[in-house]
C-alpha cells in the first residue's frame, strides 16, 4: 500500500503547475524514501527532476516501490476539484495499481477521485552529483523578471559569472544589453544574492526554457543556478522541508 498526505495540498498543486508546460506524461516513482519524478521535456532539450522526501509529508507509507504513469493534463483536471487550502492524500491499494486515488480534505468537505494510470516506457537517466564551478543563489522573482525583460530582445540569454556577481546579457537584431546582479548579504534570506565562483563561466541558453522554468518560482523565494563551462546548467528550487525541483538545460554549444 502507498499513501502520501500533503498537509499543504496547495504545494502539490504548485508543483504540478510548475511542470505542466514542460512535460506531458510522467512516471511518478514512490519508494520508502519518498516520491520522485524524472522526465525529459517534450522537445528533449530539458530534464525535469522532482524529489519529495517522506519526512516532508504529514503521513507517508510505501511498502513496495511503485511506478505510477500519469498524464499531467488529467492530473490537473482532478486537482482543479481541490481547494488551495485542502490537505491532499495520494493512495493506491494494489501492488500493481491501475488507478491513483486522491482525497481532498477541508474543514467542511471530503472529496475522493480516482485517476487512471498509464504504462509509460521512460528510461531513467543517471544524473551524477556534480561539483559546479559557479553556483549562484538569487531571488527567484528577480531571475524571472530578468528573463522576461531580456527575452524581449533576443531568444538567447548569456550568463557570465565572476567573484563580483552574475551578469545576464543579450545581443539581438534591435541592439544589446546587460543586467548585473550584485552580491548582497541582507538579513532577509529571500533577497540574498550569493555567488560561489571557483571558475567563472560564460554560457548561452534559450530564454524560452527559462521562462517555462520560472513557473516554479512560486515554490521558492530563491533560485539556485549551478553552472560549469559547456555543461548543462541546473536551476533548482528548494521546496521547503520536502525536497527540490531541479531543471536541467543544455547550453548553446557553438557560437
Amino acid at each position: 500500500m502507498f499513501e502520501a498526505k500533503f498537509e499543504d495540498g496547495g504545494l502539490f498543486k504548485k508543483i504540478v503547475e510548475a511542470i505542466k508546460e514542460l512535460v506531458k506524461n510522467v512516471n511518478l516513482e514512490a519508494n520508502g524514501t519518498g516520491i520522485s519524478l524524472q522526465a525529459m521535456d517534450t522537445s528533449h532539450v530539458a530534464l525535469v527532476a522532482l524529489q519529495l522526501n517522506e519526512k516532508g509529508f504529514k503521513k507517508y507509507r510505501c511498502e513496495k516501490s511503485l511506478t505510477m504513469g500519469l498524464s499531467i493534463e488529467n492530473l490537473q483536471k482532478i486537482l482543479k476539484c481541490s481547494g488551495n487550502d485542502d490537505q491532499i492524500t495520494l493512495r493506491t491499494q494494489d501492488e500493481e495499481p491501475t488507478t491513483l486515488s486522491f482525497t481532498f480534505e477541508s474543514k467542511n468537505r471530503i472529496s475522493e477521485f480516482q485517476l487512471n494510470l498509464m504504462s509509460l516506457d521512460q528510461e531513467q537517466l543517471g544524473v551524477p552529483d556534480t561539483e559546479y564551478s559557479s553556483v549562484v543563489r538569487m531571488p527567484s522573482n528577480e531571475f524571472t523578471k530578468i528573463c522576461r525583460e531580456l527575452g524581449n530582445i533576443n531568444e538567447a540569454i548569456g550568463i557570465e559569472t565572476s567573484k563580483e556577481g552574475i551578469k545576464f546579457y543579450v545581443k539581438g537584431d534591435i541592439g544589446e544589453g546587460q543586467v548585473s546582479v550584485k552580491i548582497n548579504d541582507t538579513e532577509k534570506p529571500e533577497e540574498r544574492v550569493e555567488c560561489e565562483v571557483d571558475e567563472p563561466v560564460n554560457l548561452s541558453f534559450a530564454v524560452r526554457y527559462f521562462n517555462l522554468f520560472n513557473k516554479a518560482s512560486a515554490l521558492s523565494s530563491q533560485v539556485i543556478l549551478s553552472m560549469s563551462q559547456d555543461q548543462p546548467l541546473v536551476i533548482e528550487y528548494i521546496i521547503e522541508e520536502m525536497g527540490s525541483l531541479k531543471l536541467y538545460l543544455a547550453p548553446k554549444i557553438n557560437d
Binding site: 532539450v45 537517466l125 551524477p128 536541467y248
Partner: peptide, 14 residues
C-alpha cells in the same frame, strides 16, 4: 538552436 537529445546523451554518457 540546440542539439535535440543533448541532455539525454550527456547524462547517459556520464
Amino acid at each position: 538552436f540546440f542539439d535535440q537529445d543533448y541532455i539525454q546523451q550527456y547524462y547517459q554518457a556520464q
